[in-house]
Amino acid sequence: MKHLLCALFLAVFAAPLLAGEKYITLASTTSTQNSGLFDAILPLFTAKTGIKVRVVAVGTGQALRIARNGDADALLVHHRPSEEAFVAEGYGIDRLDVMYNDFILVGPETDPAQISKAENAIGALSSIAHTSANFASRGDDSGTHKKEQELWRAAGISPSGRWYLETGSGMGATLNFSKAKLTYTLTDRGTWITFGNKGSLKRLFSGDKSLFNPYGIILVNPARHPHVKLDMARAFSDWMISPEGQKAISDFRIDGFQAFCPNANNIAAEIADRAACPAEAD
């Protein structure tokens, strides 16, 4: 019995150490995972380098926390100010722009706050607040939630009241909630395109520059966490910004629509060009 137990313990706990597989752990966001982007592009990277990428997909806040603890080798997230703070505090190095898409406002097709007629994102949020139309907030410190808070701040509104509903959950769960309660919500376009339970929800407002949603890749600083696989993580980030990786990102389609637009190195030009990318798709 004791031998059996010992053998079992070894099998359970030594197996991952003995496997000798080349891999890195990437902390990323649900938006990239749920859209299927990783399923499309990671096999190409693995085929070229033999390095597997284990993706832990959580909200941006939690992804940053995982990387801060040294539990990931690299980060792919979407909240520029948090990313820059992460690097400034010495937890990460070599932040690079990889790709972008945009946030959109969705809501019931009856559009009670008439946000589809708004001039910009701030105007759209203002009319939601002024008509006290129900709005579902992620409330989970994710990249999307941080973006939403920035937009409210820019609009000079501190949202509160019975119309402002914090779900405290992921984008998908919040969209499920919005569909059932017929509320407005802010979502990234990738999650929206793949979301399978839209019901009477429609994309009502998009295209404002302030809804720009850039994704950055950061390597975890080996000076903080000596165990991180810097070389392999760098191989991954180099590949992501290489012409090959950038092409893989732009080739990725959901139902024929491009969900992410590569923008390594030339972000300014791409922003000017972003009317064409991503495709206007629901």
């Binding site: 284990r54 832990v56 998908g172 969209l175 499920n176 793949t194 979301f195 399978g196 339970n197």
Partner: peptide, 24 residues
């Protein structure tokens, strides 16, 4: 586990993931 595809994804985490994708 982190719900890593092919490594730590189990039935319940798959169900949660598909729910969040709206594939009810």
């Amino acid at each position: 586990g982190g719900n890593i595809n092919g490594l730590t994804r189990v039935m319940t985490t798959t169900i949660a993931l598909e729910t969040s994708k709206g594939n009810l």
